[in-house]
Design a protein around this nucleic acid. Structure first.
Length: 396
RNA sequence: GGGCAGGUUGGGCAGGUGGUGAGCCCAGCUGACUGUAAAUCAGCCGCCGACGGCUGUAGAGGUUCGAUUCCUCUCCUGCCCA
């Protein structure tokens, strides 16, 4: 199995080690695999979901909550922490882990996503991105080298190369240009990176165009990154388009010893299909955000806790859920908390949806470990909260 | 018993002193949210065969070409005086 471990002589051996514990079956019925990613602050079992803590905090939760819900790795954001409180300040205070009192692995996103999410607050050229701060309007130039330097200062377990994502529906020439730029930035990121206890992941772009996606996958996989991110998805594409794109990219990585990380994917139904197509790592704001907006994920569906009918409902959100919320409180209480805008509502809801998501991933891993994965797809699909109608490609 | 002020679509209001009241906030309902400028946003929220119609300003009458507006009576609410 040594050929599945990061190649010796790689830029920084030891910062990340990925082992495939249960490879996909040879019959090709699924590309799903069980793995373990070893990082400076601990091991991550894959397939795995990473809760997002953009500002060095998973909104509404503290590190004890994160441990309780079973988070083994979380995300933080380079751009946001650079702006506030500043990466140098965090470095002076002992690094990101000490700063936020989280001693398990952290992956920092490069700020590439802000290239799209901040809309008209940025200008991109070959050198990098100029952001106009959403906080105070000041301008900041982000280059691949700068993004690496900020992440080295933060001290995350995994840094990510700066990229230029574009909406999946963008015209081909827009996708092609952004993908080419992402490739140049990938090489510059590798050249700039030197922190030996930190892994560096590169990002594949290529939109939904099969040839562009394939070429980008080959290009990024040809560079000595520690992991391969699939970017530019989880946007405005349909689930079918996303899955077709995975069917283009992942087979090209079949013999690659590194973890595959689909950036931004979050609904259980979407996660399951991506795992089936060979993805190891995920992150998304979705479970936490919809939780704060009053939507609770339960087996086979979802509850909008603000619906009037829950005001008199003494049952827990989900009978067999081990989370703080379901163990302790009724739907009626939660319906009240949301109406009263009590802060506890957001913590409980976030605990529940992240517990649901992480438990769902654990069920997938259990099936992989037991060798029952492709067979258990119907059962897992039934449990997954359904995607939105738009994401499923259903016409309104 | 007398006086004053009121009664607007589930609740709370705005407006309207003779010439088009379906406007706001709650509440409610439905969507959306996917590498977080999001504890947010959008739509609906009197009735109907619904790109358009109809009804509606406590109730009943009256004056008027026309009444939410003016007059009369009744009911209801609040305050003050007995």
């Amino acid at each position: 199995m040594s050929d599945l471990v990061a190649r010796p002589g790689r830029r920084q051996a030891g910062a990340a080690r990925f082992e495939v514990l249960v490879p996909p079956p040879v019959d090709g019925s699924t590309r799903a695999r069980l793995g373990r990613l070893s990082l400076s602050h601990g091991d991550v079992e894959t397939p795995q979901f990473m809760p997002v803590g953009t500002n060095a905090a998973v909104k509404a939760l503290d590190p004890a909550d994160l441990r309780t819900i079973g988070a083994s790795i979380i995300l933080a954001n380079t751009y946001h922490l650079y702006l506030r409180p500043g990466h140098e300040r965090i470095a002076r205070l002992g690094g990101l882990h000490d700063f936020m009192a989280w001693d398990r692995p952290i992956l920092t996103d490069s700020g590439g996503f802000q290239v799209v999410s901040l809309g008209d607050l940025r200008v991109v050229d070959d050198e990098g991105v100029v952001f106009r701060s959403h906080l105070d309007g000041s301008t900041h130039r982000f280059t691949p080298e700068h993004a690496v330097a900020v992440q080295e200062a933060l001290g995350s377990d995994v840094a990510v190369a700066l990229d230029e994502p574009v909406p999946p529906s963008s015209p081909r020439e827009v996708v092609a240009a952004a993908t080419a730029r992402t490739h140049r930035w990938a090489e510059r990121s590798l050249a700039a990176h030197g922190r030996p206890d930190q892994a560096l992941f590169g990002i594949v772009q290529g939109g939904l165009e099969p040839d562009l996606r394939a070429a980008s996958t080959r290009f990024i996989a040809g560079l000595p990154f520690d992991g391969i991110c699939l970017g530019g998805l989880a946007g405005d594409e349909t689930a079918a388009e996303r899955e077709a794109t995975l069917d283009v990219a992942v087979p090209l990585l079949a013999d690659d010893p590194r973890p595959r990380y689909l950036m931004g994917l979050g609904s259980p139904a979407d996660l399951l299909e991506a795992v089936h197509r060979g993805v190891d790592l995920f992150d998304s704001v979705l479970p936490a955000r919809v939780a704060r907006n009053g939507q609770f994920w339960v087996p086979g569906g979802r509850l909008n806790i603000r619906n009037q009918r829950f005001l008199d409902d003494p049952a827990p959100v989900q009978d067999d859920c081990p989370c703080l919320c379901c163990r302790t409180f009724s739907r009626a209480y939660l319906a009240h908390l949301f109406r009263a805008q009590e802060l506890l509502a957001y913590r409980l809801a976030t605990c529940h949806n992240l517990t649901f998501t992480l438990d769902f991933m654990a069920r997938i891993r259990a099936a992989l470990r037991a060798g029952t994965f492709p067979a258990s797809l119907p059962e897992l699909r039934a449990r997954a909260a359904p995607s939105s109608a738009r994401a499923a490609g259903v016409q309104p």
